[in-house]
Design a protein around this nucleic acid. Structure first.
Length: 586
DNA sequence: ATAGGGTTAG
């Protein structure tokens, strides 16, 4: 403390100090200020050194910060805490841990502030081992039940993939701040557990904790995952009703929610009403149009985005290329792919390659798609790219190429059941039933199971789940009865069930059920029974919609005179008056 | 004269 006073006074408003303040977080001026400090003999001032160190971190010169730290004799708690905080919030997670270890070595006691930053760094690293170690340090040193440390821990365990422990820390908190609730909700949401996220949100409301915009961002993401339009709309009403600021982040979440819950025009409305937009916002609205098959609107917005001076990035190009792929805009897609690197200096990644192969493949340009894939570097020929190629082969019934690609994929990923399913479908299409059998036996030997398909539908804010041939619903009898009637009426209108290859993946006893009772058919029937005329039926499916269901939906939309919106794994289908928005191009 | 927290969007 003596030392502090001694060095504090003489250097106030010294030229060195002023140089430092002027420099801010720019590295060149910082180094000049450093020289100033050394020359003027003020390098013994703790305050100046500490400031210099934190600014070096913020300027991104972490190596410089390390060298500076080396030059300091007996760094104090103030200096270590500043370094730990600055490095952690500037994204230098490993360095934060290094600084923390040096702090321990120097026998300087960490505080609750130290732990929040170090735990945040562990979360960034997703290192369960490291974080657990820091967690125990925090417990031993008596900072384990600080509310900031606890919220950081919830986040850390969630990001490291241990939701159970995240929940345990959360449950054992004595005082849960809104940030703690937000951490837990986002923990579930980010790990794909949207139901649990919403459940925690409900507990939060029961406890009378007032949600803030961060809460809603996570809840809206959960709604997007589930296709829970009802809850999403409730959130939107709440935001408006309570006069919450429609920030860029919140607005972008709303756009995404409406788009992924099937309502593009509401997504557009939100976009139009936003006062501030950034590249993420633009990307969200482009992707909204793209996934609904409105390629030209997506492209129009993309051009508007560029005219507005917003610079597209890698994610934007995924949205743009995928919009082209889903609408058959091959010429535009080729052009944007080229401009991506030529005009924007961006490096196309696996996702962009997938879009290109998908786009060319869907359009029937199988040779070009194949050439595109083959011309990628070996290391860039990711299984996802070949999978897109395989899908194209199946779509255009190219047996020889399909078999070749499938064999290649099976060699690369022998434990991925979807490759086997695809290969067996291709054999089935070619009538090679012996091969179908062989592929299926291979799957059985490897104990691989086809992913189970299911569909959900929301009625009165409640979600109902159906799987194929499902009879677990309370109103099962009514549903099956009505479905049979619907199918009869569809057939009268000209519907002929597709002798689909999917049949061949199934066990004998499942076959009779399969086509007729696919989950989306059950869900749509339930929707027709439970909602009044004029209400759009919205279904969310976890896999791709099959050819027969696609055809049946068209007929159902016509005979029941209803709009039906189906979200499958990749995109939306809007069925109306016997037609689908995808123009059978999916 | 030096720091001061955890949660959020495509």
């Amino acid at each position: 403390m003596e030392a502090k006073r001694q060095f504090t006074e003489p250097f106030a408003h010294s030229p060195a100090h002023e140089a430092l303040l002027r420099a801010g977080s720019r590295i060149r001026p910082l180094q000049q200020a450093h020289a100033h400090i050394v020359v003027s003999g003020s390098h013994r001032s703790r305050a100046l050194l500490t400031k210099l160190l934190t600014l070096a971190c913020k300027a991104g010169s972490i190596g410089y910060a390390h060298r500076l730290l080396y030059s300091v004799r007996n760094p104090d708690a103030f200096l270590f805490n500043s370094l730990v905080k600055a490095s952690s919030s500037s994204g230098f997670a490993i360095d934060t841990v290094v600084f923390y270890l040096r702090m321990l070595q120097s026998r300087v006691s960490p505080s609750s502030y130290t732990f929040t930053s170090v735990i945040k760094a562990c979360a960034d690293l997703s290192s369960l081992r490291l974080g657990k170690c820091v967690h125990s340090h925090a417990l031993v040193s008596g900072h384990g039940s600080d509310r900031f440390v606890e919220a950081a821990l919830v986040n850390f365990y969630a990001k490291s993939g241990d939701l159970g422990v995240a929940r345990k820390v959360f449950d054992e908190m004595s005082e849960r701040t809104v940030v703690a609730w937000n951490s837990m909700i986002s923990a579930y949401e980010q790990n794909g557990c949207a139901r649990e996220a919403i459940e925690v949100f409900c507990r939060m409301r029961e406890r009378g904790v007032r949600p803030d915009s961060t809460t809603f961002v996570s809840v809206l993401s959960a709604c997007s995952q589930l296709g829970a339009l009802g809850l999403g709309c409730w959130v939107h009403d709440y935001i408006v009703g309570n006069g919450l600021d429609l920030t860029v982040v919140l607005g972008t979440s709303l756009i995404n929610m409406y788009a992924r819950c099937g309502n593009v025009s509401k997504a557009r409305e939100v976009f139009d009403s936003m006062s501030e937009r950034n590249v993420v916002t633009w990307t969200a609205v482009i992707s909204a149009y793209g996934m609904h098959g409105y390629g030209s609107q997506a492209m129009e917005l993309f051009h508007r985005m560029k005219a507005h001076g917003s610079c597209p990035n890698n994610v934007t190009f995924v949205a743009v290329l995928s919009a082209c792929a889903h609408s058959g805009l091959v010429h535009e897609g080729r052009g944007e792919y080229a401009s991506m690197s030529q005009e924007y200096g961006l490096v196309p990644g696996v996702e962009h390659h997938v879009c290109m192969v998908d786009m060319l493949g869907r359009a029937g340009l199988l040779d070009e798609a194949y050439k595109f894939t083959k011309e990628l570097d070996r290391g860039e020929q990711a299984p996802a790219v070949w999978t897109a190629m395989l899908g194209a082969c199946k779509m255009h019934k190219n047996f020889d190429l399909g078999v070749e690609v499938a064999e290649h994929l099976l060699a690369a990923e022998p434990n991925n059941p979807s490759h086997y399913v695809m290969l067996s479908n291709i054999y089935a299409l070619a009538g090679r039933m012996d091969r179908v059998e062989m592929v299926r036996n291979k799957m059985i030997r490897r104990r691989l199971k086809k992913q189970v398909g299911y569909s959900t539908i929301e009625v009165d804010q409640e979600t109902h789940l159906f799987s194929m041939g499902d009879q677990s619903h309370i109103e099962t009898d009514k549903i099956y009865q009505y479905l049979d009637e619907l199918m009869r009426r569809c057939k009268e209108a000209g519907y002929v069930p597709t002798p689909d290859s999917v049949l061949h993946e199934l066990e004998e006893e499942e076959r009779e059920y399969a086509l007729r009772y696919h989950s989306e058919k059950l869900a749509v029937t339930f929707g027709l029974l439970k909602t009044c005329h004029g209400t759009t039926i919205r279904i969310v499916k976890n896999l791709r919609i099959c050819e027969d269901c696609h055809l049946a939906m068209k007929y159902i939309s016509s005979v029941a005179n209803r709009e039906i919106v189906v979200r499958d794994r990749l995109r939306f289908h809007h069925f109306k008056d016997g037609h689908c928005s995808c123009l059978d191009y999916w």
